[in-house]
Computed example of a mutant assay.
Amino acid sequence: MAEPKQKSSRSRSHHRRAKNYRPIKVTVSVCPNCGEPKEPHRVCLHCGYYGGKQILEIGE
């Protein structure tokens, strides 16, 4: 296996590792029932509806 000829500096190795880091982008859609923002393909946590049907009972 190949050996490095010189030591990699801390900034070079950290820069190489930082290229793989990406903040997670959260997709947001609008609930058709109440209009609150929610994640797509998930039950709305504000009103409890998904696909036009009430799935969760949300207490007031």
Rank of each mutant, 00 (worst) to 15 (best):
A2M: 09
V26K: 15
R42P: 01
P40H: 12
H14L: 11
Y49N: 07
E36W: 12
K19Q: 10
E3T: 02
P4N: 09
S29G: 02
K53S: 10
A2P: 14
G59I: 01
P4M: 01
K38M: 13
Q6I: 06
E60S: 15
R16L: 04
H15F: 13
L45A: 10
L56G: 05
S11K: 14
P32K: 10
K7V: 02
H41K: 14
P40E: 04
R17P: 00
P32F: 05
P40K: 08
P40N: 09
R17Q: 12
K7T: 01
E36A: 14
K25Q: 11
V28C: 02
S11T: 04
C47K: 03
K53R: 15
P23N: 09
H46R: 13
G35S: 10
P40T: 02
R42C: 11
L45W: 14
C31K: 08
P23K: 13
A2R: 13
P37L: 05
P4F: 07
P37V: 00
K7C: 03
H14A: 08
P23F: 11
G48H: 06
V26Q: 12
E3P: 02
I58S: 06
S13T: 07
C34K: 11
R10Y: 12
L45T: 04
V28I: 13
Y21M: 03
V28E: 07
E57D: 11
A2Q: 08
K53I: 00
Y50K: 10
L45G: 14
H14G: 00
E57C: 04
H41D: 10
G35M: 05
S9W: 06
H15R: 12
P23D: 06
P37F: 10
A18C: 08
Y21I: 02
H15W: 09
K25I: 05
M1L: 05
V43F: 14
T27H: 13
P4L: 04
I58C: 06
Q54N: 13
E39C: 07
C47G: 06
V28P: 01
C44P: 03
H46I: 08
K7N: 07
Q6P: 00
P32C: 03
E60A: 12
H41L: 02
E3S: 07
P32T: 02
V28D: 03
V28W: 14
R16M: 04
P23W: 06
C44E: 01
R22A: 09
V30E: 13
P37W: 12
E57T: 06
A2C: 04
P4C: 00
G59K: 14
E36V: 01
R42M: 11
E57S: 09
K7M: 04
T27A: 13
K38E: 05
N33H: 14
P32V: 00
K5E: 01
E57W: 08
C31M: 07
A18D: 12
S9G: 13
S29I: 12
K38N: 01
P4H: 09
S13R: 15
